[in-house]
Design a protein around this nucleic acid. Structure first.
Lengths: 343, 343
DNA sequence: GAATCAAATCAAAGCGCTTTGGATGCTTTA
DNA sequence: TAAAGCATCCAAAGCGCTTTGATTTGATTC
């Protein structure tokens, strides 16, 4: 069923060279023979062995996605599926594969060196960058092309990234809440060492300062963004003497938990308590249709996946001097979850 | 930085053969030299080129996960991330890679043949089996080892699968609701052609019959399992003259939507309306902690991922006569979302 | 002391592809 | 008519590894 180049060329009574060239679009082959070759290839169901091709060309035709797996935090980022879907689209178009590697965060360096040596990817997408991100100098050093989904704050060398403007998004969201008269705004953020969480916090504190509001450390939270985290935190806060009137949340999932706590407390979202969340526009978790459930800073993570992949593929065959970067703005969409602060 | 076998062997003043054998644990090499080789390999950061190795051995040391991408339904299964995490664990342990391929559902056959010919995977995990699943005979025919996550109802040949007992789970859930006095139970199911949805429906109708209840076709729904689908459907149902008193839902995400509709209607979940959902035990969406939010049929998809991967790896090096199968039972956990039917 | 054996090592072939550096005709040019 | 040029095609080397089929050495046997 499956033929290899040798068999195909024998069948065509041509050399492997010619067949190879015919299929790869080289000019030095007669158009007529090319047609013949292509037809035969299709008929005999020929498809080049990717390993052999890789060996010969030095290109793996595959992109690696390295997913940090923490021993502390067992969570799988819910955003991952959509990101992959976006990236996968770009890879399919270009004939690339996508290979996933789980890397525990305790011996990252070894893992990345291994990836390099194994040589089964032409480039990497780096997920979940922390504020201080040793992988960036490491990969630069290893001379393997990479694009970071997100950014790292402390990086000396330039590197390629695709990120959303987290700071501005949360600045706008905070300002919007302040304009509605909210003074006590809780920030339910992601893990502290994650870069996006840091930037979002910066946006929040910035806007608070601009609005002349004090940041109460007792209203700042950062953890793995689960539903239950949102629920517990909000439940706790709402039971306090002087509860916040608004919540700024880093993920829809967590916001759903916050909302549940609000309901449980017998309060009404949008009237008694306001919520703004970041919305990654996940396919299975759309933020309402005509009327958004939550007021949100929205940016499609699927698109980010597509753009990251495209960028990386571009880098691989262009080898640009300076690494490209791409900043995506999140839009602030107004839904039912926000209203004037109760007096 | 990165050395290859030739360089390593030259440095050691040994032949490539010996070095290769030393590293791969063959007996015909002196223990002392083996130690020397291992030490040098580590020191020189040697890691075999996986493509060359694959070419030579005929094994790719990689497992493919084929994700069906529908043009109609843009959704990425939220369950996917956790499944991958579980499978990835098994692969890491065994030194395997995981490669993802998105396959549009319009020309599956071509795609799978290509995968076979490219030869970059030793086996496949098949996701999202439909009731009638042409991929099963196809892959059997192509002689590529595979494990199906789920089952297909119409398959003549034996094939390996890991699945949960969907029918029994929904049977039990339905019976539980019937015992609580519910007569009008809505089924908010997944897409009809999906095999799991079919089995769940079978469980539901079975239990309804056993409880002497009539199945009202107007209470059966099947769609892509998004939050908004749950919301809309429930909202619609609750506005009817004779609304259901209970909802049986195929996914937590959708159940969250149902819950939102219940809240919006001014009703109380667990008192006015009951919900039982299936719970895949996703890491970012835990069903409460001490007290589950939803009464649910629970089964960890992450574990399913791990087991599927293990099974496939086992098949690859054992080549069993009859394909293994593994049925996982879902446990019924009782939460706050169910109560006696209002009278 | 020659023959046998086991242990340890090696040279070379082969996996399926690309690519370099010719060949081979056939047409064009002077 | 010989030289040059062009369009096509090919043989063989090489990518980095494993593995087959020797070869070498020192120990053991008779």
């Amino acid at each position: 069923m499956a033929v290899n180049l040798k068999q195909l060329s024998e069948h065509l009574k041509l050399s492997q060279t010619t067949v190879s060239r015919a299929l790869n679009g080289y000019p030095e082959v007669n158009e007529e023979t090319r047609k013949r070759v292509q037809a035969a290839a299709k008929a005999m169901n020929y498809s080049p062995n990717i390993r052999a091709k890789g060996l010969a060309t030095g290109r793996a035709m595959a992109i690696g996605h390295v997913i940090p797996v923490s021993n502390k935090h067992e969570m799988v980022n819910p955003v991952f599926g959509d990101f992959i879907a976006g990236a996968g689209e770009a890879y399919s178009q270009a004939g690339y594969e996508m290979v996933l590697t789980l890397v525990a965060d305790d011996n990252e360096e070894r893992a990345y060196r291994k990836i390099k040596a194994k040589g089964n990817v032409d480039g990497l997408i780096v997920h979940g960058p922390r504020m201080i991100e040793p992988r960036i100098p490491l990969l630069t050093d290893l001379e393997i092309p990479f694009v970071v989904h997100g950014r790292a704050s402390q990086a000396d060398t330039g590197y390629a990234w695709v990120d959303i403007n987290n700071k501005r998004a949360f600045q706008r969201a905070t300002a919007y809440l302040a304009d509605l008269g909210h003074r006590r705004i809780a920030l339910i953020n992601g893990l502290e060492d994650m870069d996006f969480a840091y930037r979002r916090r910066a946006g929040y504190t910035d806007a608070m300062a601009k609005a002349g509001l004090e940041v109460d450390p007792a209203l700042l939270f950062s953890e793995e963004m689960t539903e239950i985290y949102g629920y517990r935190t909000a439940q706790d806060l709402l039971a306090r003497d002087n509860p916040p009137t608004a919540f700024l949340v880093s993920s829809m999932i967590t916001a759903i938990g916050v909302r549940r706590a609000i309901d449980a407390a017998g309060l009404k979202m949008g009237r008694d308590v306001s919520i703004i969340t970041h919305d990654d526009d996940l396919s299975y978790l759309q933020n309402g249709d005509s009327v958004p459930i939550f007021t949100a800073t929205r940016s499609s993570v699927r698109e980010a996946g597509y753009l990251s992949a495209k960028m990386l593929l571009g880098m691989i065959d262009q080898k640009p001097e300076t690494p490209p970067t791409r900043m995506l703005e999140a839009e602030l969409i107004i839904g039912d979850s926000t209203g004037r602060a109760p007096s």
